[in-house]
Nucleic acid binder design. Sequence first.
DNA 1: TTCCTTAAGTGACTTATGTCATAGATAGCA
DNA 2: TGCTATCTATGACATAAGTCACTTAAGGAA
Lengths: 210, 210
Amino acid sequence: MQEQYNIRQLFPGLEEKLYQEMETHGEIRHIAAGDTLLRKGQTIRSTMLILDGIVKLYQEDEDGSEFFMYDIEPGEACAVSMVCSYRQENSQVLAKALTDATYMMIPNQYMDEWLAKYKSWHYFVIRTWRTRYEGLLNTINDIAFKNMDERLLLYIEGQVKKMGRHIKLTHQEIATDLNSSREVISRLMKKMEKNGWLIINRNSFEWIKP
Amino acid sequence: MQEQYNIRQLFPGLEEKLYQEMETHGEIRHIAAGDTLLRKGQTIRSTMLILDGIVKLYQEDEDGSEFFMYDIEPGEACAVSMVCSYRQENSQVLAKALTDATYMMIPNQYMDEWLAKYKSWHYFVIRTWRTRYEGLLNTINDIAFKNMDERLLLYIEGQVKKMGRHIKLTHQEIATDLNSSREVISRLMKKMEKNGWLIINRNSFEWIKP
DNA sequence: TTCCTTAAGTGACTTATGTCATAGATAGCA
DNA sequence: TGCTATCTATGACATAAGTCACTTAAGGAA
């Protein structure tokens, strides 16, 4: 079961003995699209490594509204779950599965042990924090300096790079990712269509800008 | 010279031998209020530990506008400057001294060495990243969910907690910290004054809300 | 005192975005 | 084929915040 995910390929550059420990102590879990991996305030007991699927990280308001920050993809880890065992930490964020997802849970007790034993592990931890920090920087950059039209353009270009020119997303889904509302996205996309940048279909659109 | 700052007190909990290495290899630098510690895009060659003064971290736009994110205080480190030597990194942020400040620069070559030798050092590094990540989360929380009036209130209450009820700040300075404009802050503060929360003076104000 | 610089107050206006209401369009199912 | 749920389109309006222009006030310097 564990072997259907190649952790050596997903998390390259770690020591062989560390991979073996991960296989021994890591618990593989599955989660359905839309379900919550980590709630805000929840005590963190394990480090989570994403093996399959996409997990989305949100900042959550007191009143329950969610603000999307960034995605975590296979081969990446949830930084907030990487806690040094000497203090109990609570999650400040909300993590939800976008698609069905699989992840490996490594109980916190191994964090200290592995930090001591494996050089590659502490690089991995630091690299993970750094990557997530950069994710937040990008988010801040977007909301501080860019208008929705720019953000939408960057978002679409990002999708095109990943998925090709035919994008299967509703306006509502895009709006949610950009923390905006459907009407706003519809209007902006209509404008883009008038500019000849894309063709809008139901549930999808085609990016035709060169 | 080095001895005028007690690093054992500023950075508690590290190994004695590590303090000694810090004293041997760390270079103490001074910087004047308003000067830049780290520019965006600059190659990072040293880890910076703040010994005295306050350093402000900004996100910088392509066109040069600055967005204030958080402060770094004595006893804290600039996370973005903590790079694992095996790859050259460039700064994605701008760091400026708010007050005259003193900091210790530790050349990157020691990062790997110390990570290997001192357990306390890698905890320190991870803790630093975590703290900075939380700083960004708060920033995002503010701009995503709060209006200026709430943010101003929280800001003032924070200042009161630190400096007492008599705050020596101009509206312009507050506006800059909140990434807003003077007029907006003036108007909101006038409203607060009408509510009997504060008394506005030139260059300062008194917080009288219970 | 008088002058001048800087801070603060304020009305008028602009703008981006969000919200409401309502209508039209499309795909898939019965 | 027609029905219905779900998308999409769009006008009208609300609102927070930024900008401009100009005024008023305070404090230090001469």
